[in-house]
Nucleic acid binder design. Structure first.
Lengths: 240, 240
DNA sequence: AAGTGTGAATTGATTCACAGCC
DNA sequence: GGCTGTGAATCAATTCACACTT
């Protein structure tokens, strides 16, 4: 993934491969979009096309959740939406705290995908005293001193770190000490956490750099016909 | 990735595995941080700790670039920074266009990691006529009609799509038609692109949902001692 | 006839463990 | 003696191809 891997080969319990878990949100979104268009039944081929993966992978992924399809027919959209949502934990309400209300924190507080679908921004927290009390997207910004109190009162277990790099580890330590067990890290540093705490990293600069790597190769192969002759595997799936 | 995979098993040319490419930005950043702290030589063990990976993986990754270390000693920080930067294409200048100047586009335009280190925001583009001419982070916002002209004049090959989902595919098609061959997609839809064009997806909602999945499992195992007895593999690496 | 679910085969990534070099 | 670089072994993910169900 692009984010950093949670170091656990198989998800606990029924044992869903991590690669499959990472695609469930994609399937969920595609299914919701199909449902909104009035589609009631979908084949693995169709759903795979909508999600931009191949159908064998989709079927294998769904088979890890259970046998929710009908041979010769396909999957019932409503039923599958529910099953995937339940598996992802979207049928419960997750209060989330966002630490760091800079440009990115601001954008995240307003981001639709964060506020809808199971998640709710319980509080915004920032170091900067000047911001305290300010309203962002209708939500007040609390000072960092209130962090532990907010986590306890709202039963927050998932936090978003959108602070500058140098303070991210300190913030993370406080989050974990206060009871947070899942962290989404936007700061450009690897966070150290104790066992049992999950971290996923979203690294905007890295993503651009990975694109630049491939872009450079493309441009090189235009200039040097020798390497340009190396066969490229076909791109059948949609990406992104 | 957390981001969607570029569908090419090995990078062109010398054949660097995609998983290795995805970690090079991490190593680059860790090396720069070490250099800033005055470190001149580093062992695979030390660098791996700084980057949050294990040392065997780091050595294998670096071995794909070449033999840049010294046995019994370690790696010269300056030299390795340069080699990794060169491999990533950071020694050249990449003009980037950002399409969509909503909350997220705004944040990205201001984001340090985007503007420094090889990348330069050549232009901001938005559909909204009201925004046209406005200055964001000192950069003017251009109307969508100017998209092709901007790409041609600035020789843009990398674009960032930060538009709402419904228009993302249209924008992407125009970008590709105008010559863009790498796209960083923040819109919550899979983009269809022709062969030879790379797309990476950053999906904030997905990342939260993946955390929620694991969080739900943790909470379930607290309630049901039976599954709580299932052994957890140790977490030795840092994540995020 | 259509299309899921899944063993088997393949491909890719990670980890081990040590030979080789400084 | 210490540490890199790398074959070999292991582990995970993907793809194939078809038996089975409706």
């Amino acid at each position: 993934m692009s984010g950093s891997r949670v170091e656990r080969p198989l998800a606990r319990g029924r044992g869903i491969p991590e690669a499959t878990v990472a695609r469930l949100p994609l399937y969920h979104r595609s299914l919701v979009a199909l449902r909104e268009r009035g589609v009631t039944t979908v084949s693995s081929e169709e759903l795979a096309a909508a999600a931009g993966v191949n159908s064998a992978k989709l079927r294998k992924d769904l088979s890890h959740l259970g046998s929710y399809g009908t041979r010769g027919v396909g999957y019932d959209v409503d039923y599958l939406v529910y099953q995937v949502a339940r598996e992802l934990g979207l049928t419960q309400d997750w209060p989330v705290v966002i630490v760091g209300v800079g440009n990115l924190g601001h954008a995240l507080a307003n981001y639709g995908g964060f506020t809808s679908r199971g998640f709710r921004v319980a509080a915004l927290v920032d170091n900067d005293e000047a911001l305290a009390g300010e309203l962002v997207n209708g939500l007040p910004v609390y000072p960092l001193a209130k962090l532990e109190q907010i986590i306890a009162e709202h039963h927050v277990s998932i936090a978003v770190v959108a602070t500058p790099g140098p303070v991210a580890q300190d913030v993370c330590d406080r989050l974990v000490a206060a009871g947070v067990t899942s962290v989404l890290n936007f700061a450009p540093v690897p966070l150290q956490v104790p066992e049992g705490v999950d971290v996923r990293k979203v690294d905007l600069a890295s993503e651009l750099q990975i694109l630049a790597f491939h872009e450079q190769r493309k441009q090189m192969s235009l200039l040097t016909p020798l390497t340009a002759l190396a066969p490229l595997p076909p791109r059948t799936e949609a990406a992104g």
